[in-house]
Design a protein around this nucleic acid. Structure first.
Lengths: 138, 138
DNA sequence: TATATACAGTTTCCGATTAAACAATTGCTC
DNA sequence: GAGCAATTGTTTAATCGGAAACTGTATATA
């Protein structure tokens, strides 16, 4: 049983890859979580907070405050669910929609560059491996 | 040019995978950054702050404060570099060494479980793909 | 229907992160 | 070698994140 080095640990590799990519997006003016939140809402509007938190792997208090800020900026809005008044359904505003469009462009461009450098087939395979990994770890 | 869904974006997949794994380790009593820091120091002791920040993709002020806390807990210690007095070299203490040993065990066990579920060959391939991805994106 | 229990979000309090300014040391250039 | 720029790391002030407590609503049970 040999000692494994840091680079052989999945947790480290994922942390590194995530941070570098996320930093580069921040430098492009894209906050990863805000973007992911808007993108989820554009794909399935009206999600309650709990589902959103699941989809983005954020915990609820963190999400509440992220949403507070985005409501301040008029990017999203809350609608209380009439059939269950504990629930709050979230929607993307018009401003959010156009903000999302411009950020989508930056993300797409940046990822295209990264994936080109890495090799497009490999990037594709990496993504599908991550997707099944996530399904399995959740 | 079709619109890509969130699950087809590398940035999202990496964020999800990283968060789930990191959460699970936290639940096992392992703080990912502390563990990574101790592990780097055990592999190459005496690194200056700047190198450490690079190795872990932390920015320097964050690292300074992480180290402050870990010095408080006597896990690591600072040694000013005599040949360049701007530099601070970091070392793992005895307490840090034994703490690292116990956390290594928990991380190894947890990752072994995760990798078994995912399939060991695939996990191996995922890791080497991530490794080359990181080299390329930095 | 009254009470208890579970559920969905928010708030609070404290710890952690960030960007910007700062201090100390070294290296360069004239 | 004097003055200026670059480097290494820390500090400060403001923002953000997380665990636990709390509010309000729905559901189950008697």
């Amino acid at each position: 049983m040999v000692e494994r080095s840091l680079n052989e640990h999945l947790s480290h590799l994922l942390a590194q890859a995530n941070r570098h990519l996320s930093r580069q997006l921040t430098a492009e003016g894209v906050s990863l979580d805000q973007w992911r939140l808007m993108k989820v809402l554009s794909e399935s509007g009206g999600l309650p907070m709990g589902k959103l938190a699941e989809e983005l792997a954020l915990n609820l208090p963190t999400l509440t405050k992220l949403v507070d800020r985005m409501v301040q900026d008029a990017l999203v809005y809350r609608v209380p669910d009439p059939s269950d008044r504990r629930k709050v359904r979230m929607f993307l505003s018009d401003k959010g929609t156009s903000m999302l469009a411009s950020q989508n462009k930056r993300v797409e461009e940046h990822e295209a560059k990264v994936e080109d450098n890495y090799g497009n087939e490999d990037a594709q395979r990496l993504k599908s491996m991550l997707e099944s990994f996530i399904k399995q770890i959740v």
